[in-house]
Design a protein around this nucleic acid. Structure first.
Lengths: 339, 339
DNA sequence: ATGAAAGCGCTAACAC
DNA sequence: GTGTTAGCGCTTTCAT
């Protein structure tokens, strides 16, 4: 019964449950966390009362002493096509361990990321999973000092305080570029992002892979970058410039499908034949790349696997592991019409 | 200084701040919430100490008594192209009011949604913003009873306990279908979703709009639905069936770009000319629809605006409003090659 | 194996 | 205008 009329019944607390089951709150707490030292009989009584009263522990209250069984996941930007599969993997792994993920969207801006991470810490989340953060390695380390942390899409294999899980971007880029070179192209260019940004970005690694392949093929002098502005998923003229340039290359490797899709579309709009006059390979193997009308070759990063491994790493860190783990996942080239 | 060696300094609490500023904890608390009755002098002292100690209140502790200044946002499915713009609007509006959004991804399954909402409630979030939930109206009402709630992408204009903000899907569908009828097509079919599902889904409203337009044009007998299976963004043969049917219509209105993009691609793969032999209009105006190689006509829902209005509604509910608000946003038709 | 009781870091009466 | 203090709902020693 509740106090009056149509008011919703007050939410059951650990005390309500203890009273109903005729045991102490400490006993209920132990059952909740299935801690050591409770008899089967007691456990049963408590379980029954929990069901009966539809009791669920307050995460807020828990956060003041113990765990919240919740991890914070920071996403760069919702439009990033790499995210859905990663999150699938994360949720699956977390769910098995009875953990929940609550996410924040950083809008690709360090300031916002910072404040979101603060919120997650303030909420006493048990760990942090960052996906392609813009925050510098220093800042990341600072946060990692305070709670378990795993980072995806950020290459820092020497980081001591947090784990990283990444696609082997350097290798992936090399594989893609080699596929272009195999077709007989010499002037393979790369569309990438601004040079001044964080050295640990995935596209920096992909640039290394591109260089590796070109150098290995004796084409070091043909290396050339076309750099887009930072504005996320926002055309900035770089691709138009490339297509209209007298130096237009016969083959282009793109740091992401975001760029590659724009390139293949603008090439088509100009009547440039792909792949005859312009061969293209992108990165991320987005659903768009796979559309028959697009037919874009791309690197599959195996996002789900990355998400699973990252979540597993975070859980083991929460359980106490402190030695860092840095994993690289082998990506796979998906060849389509554009090559 | 901290206890030992390299340990990070213990986090400042409200007591630390009070001591440093030489005032009471109540005073600090008041400054924090800028509550009534604090002198400028006191406020200044406290602010300084807060800065100096880099203090930030524990949301977990706050949640036990007052507000958390955090709202939970439940997303259907990360692959839904409608989300990014909505979230942009939500974050912008929430940010201005110094609120944070933490999101959960329901994977388009009621069970998961339920558990995520529970988590958000357990965390003592101040309000809930649900985007296209699969949960029934009853369940939604149950949650709304416990805390402020606003729902996007769920048509229930009579809901008393929560607000809704939606695109005027019925009107949007009618506009789209009329555009097809204007081109002289009589057999305009619609690709939609399963019939048995929640009556408040957006695609149900779009079906009404389709019907409206057909009936108004005296074509009630030509109404025909092709229904996809529920599996999200997963081809299920419906579209192949449509394209290979002897009754293949000359024009199709799709409940979402998810279907329309598949349709236009598979049509192309079969050598069917769009729009000559098959005119198409989708819904959501996704980035993919806008690609030159796709050129898909689509309805723009003005997602950002929806997000802003929904967030504003939630904030006003948190501030105490109880009379429900149900808003419909006028969508706009974007015509491209496919029509 | 079980329970009593002391907090965790805040907010909100209430007293001064 | 400012301070004292009783909780909020848990977890966690420490007794028993």
């Amino acid at each position: 019964m509740s106090k009056s009329g149509t008011t919703t019944p007050a939410r059951a607390t650990i005390r309500t449950v203890a009273a109903d089951a005729g045991v102490s709150v400490a006993a209920v707490s132990k059952v909740l966390r299935n801690a050591y030292g409770v008899s089967d009989g007691l456990r049963d009584k408590v379980q029954k009362s929990i069901e009966k009263l539809d009791y669920r522990p307050s995460t807020a209250a828990r956060g003041m002493r113990g765990r919240t069984y919740t991890v914070g996941v920071l996403l760069v930007e919702l439009r990033n096509p790499f995210l859905p599969s990663v999150i699938d993997g994360v949720q699956r792994t977390l769910g098995k361990a009875n953990y929940k993920a609550l996410m924040g969207v950083g809008e690709a801006r360090a300031k916002i990321e910072q404040s979101l991470i603060d919120s997650m810490v303030d909420m006493r989340m048990d760990g942090l999973l960052l996906v392609a953060p813009r925050l510098s390695g220093d800042r990341l380390a600072r946060h990692a000092q305070r709670l378990p942390m795993v980072v995806i899409g950020h290459h820092e294999p020497t980081a001591a305080l947090f784990d990283t899980v990444n696609s082997d971007d350097r290798r992936g880029a090399r594989i893609a570029v080699e596929a272009l070179l195999t077709r007989g192209h010499k002037d393979v260019h790369m569309i990438s992002m601004p040079e001044e940004n964080a050295a640990q970005n995935v596209y920096r690694e992909r640039e290394y892979g591109y260089r590796d392949a070109m150098v290995a093929a004796g084409l070091a002098d043909r290396i050339r970058f076309w750099r887009q502005k930072e504005r996320f998923a926002q055309p900035d003229g770089t691709i138009d410039a490339l297509l209209e340039s007298p130096d237009r290359p016969p083959a282009v490797f793109c740091w992401s499908d975001i760029a590659a899709v724009e390139l293949i579309n603008k090439a088509a709009a100009r009547g440039i034949n792909v792949p005859e006059d312009l061969a293209i390979i992108g990165y991320d193997d987005t659903p768009t790349a796979a559309l028959p009308l697009i037919g874009l070759s791309s690197m599959d990063q195996h996002g789900t696997q990355i998400g699973e491994l990252a979540a597993a790493a975070l859980l083991s860190r929460i359980e106490g592991r402190t030695v860092p783990e840095h994993r690289l996942i082998e990506p796979g080239l998906i060849l389509r019409r554009s090559t």
